[in-house]
């Protein structure tokens, strides 16, 4: 109940926040532009891949960190109330993520809805995009709250947020490509898959790629990929991994919040 009260206030606050609204508009404009350029909903979604994988973590971590610092005094006010810190943290976390998830969902769905493109044909792909976007939002919002709770200096926190974003979206992949090239004589399918699971952005991309037209390509990597990521077991593995990528940062962030001196 206490969580719900905090959550409700947070949602009320953030759903009117101009940055959250700008985020929705930005996603909607990008989706619309891709739709106009490519001429079809599946292609627009295909083009949205790197937008989602780069933009969502960037916006969520930066916004999360900034939001943490601007709302810090109010958080202290709430901390002075007789509710357990863990409950307060859950309220703050969900209150932060729910509006952002909604912003994301509305941003990419609305243009398709307006063009009457929400057909059964693109439903699985769109559902995948919603799932992956939600998972990335939850994951990086937790990371942002962890940064906030452990780093009081605003600039350092922002720097750390950008650093983590860059590492997860660009640096990591660069290293993986380098690794794959250097050890190209070895059987790399399994290590590569492990590396894909070890970074939420790569995991998200792999999941989406299997739904996209580039799936044709995936035949090339042979049975390993199909076995691990295909079918019922694959869905279970990817969903478990995504869940872990939410749970672990969330637990870490919650823990530092509970222990923190404000």
């Amino acid at each position: 109940m206490l969580i719900l009260a905090v959550l409700r206030a947070q949602v009320a606050e953030l759903s009117r926040n101009r940055w959250v609204l700008s985020y929705t508009v930005l996603l909607a404009v990008l989706t619309e532009a891709l739709y106009q350029l490519s001429g079809s909903a599946p292609r627009a979604l295909s083009g949205l891949l790197n937008v989602v994988l780069l933009l969502v973590p960037l916006v969520i971590t930066v916004f999360g960190v900034v939001y943490w610092h601007t709302s810090r005094e109010f958080t202290e006010l709430l901390l002075a109330q007789p509710l357990p810190r863990r409950a307060l943290w859950c309220g703050l976390y969900l209150g932060l993520t729910i509006p952002l998830v909604l912003a994301y969902a509305v941003g990419i769905t609305l243009p398709l809805l307006l063009h009457r493109e929400l057909t059964a044909a693109i439903a699985p792909l769109l559902a995948m995009y919603l799932l992956v976007g939600t998972a990335l939002t939850l994951c990086f919002a937790a990371i942002a709250l962890w940064i906030g709770a452990t780093q009081d200096d605003r600039l350092k926190a922002l720097g750390l947020a950008l650093g983590i974003w860059f590492a997860a979206t660009v640096l990591y992949d660069g290293l993986v490509v380098w690794f794959a090239t250097v050890y190209s004589d070895w059987p790399l399918e399994k290590p590569m898959l492990a590396l894909m699971f070890a970074n939420p952005v790569d995991l998200a991309r792999t999941v989406l790629m299997l739904q996209l037209d580039s799936a044709a390509l995936m035949g090339y990597t042979g049975a390993v990929l199909a076995n691990v990521l295909g079918g019922y077991r694959g869905a279970l593995a990817t969903i478990t991994a995504l869940a872990l990528w939410i749970l672990l940062p969330a637990l870490a962030a919650g823990r530092s919040f509970v222990k923190k001196d404000f």
């Binding site: 109940m1 206490l2 009260a5 905090v6 409700r8 206030a9 947070q10 009320a12 606050e13 953030l14 009117r16 926040n17 601007t70 709302s71 005094e73 109010f74 202290e76 006010l77 709430l78 002075a80 109330q81 007789p82 509710l83």
Partner: peptide, 23 residues
Amino acid sequence: PQAPRFPENLSARDVLKLVLSLR
């Protein structure tokens, strides 16, 4: 607290109701 920044989009009523619902 010392001159706190409240959430921008909440009203005095929202804040009082929130604090009230916490106790």
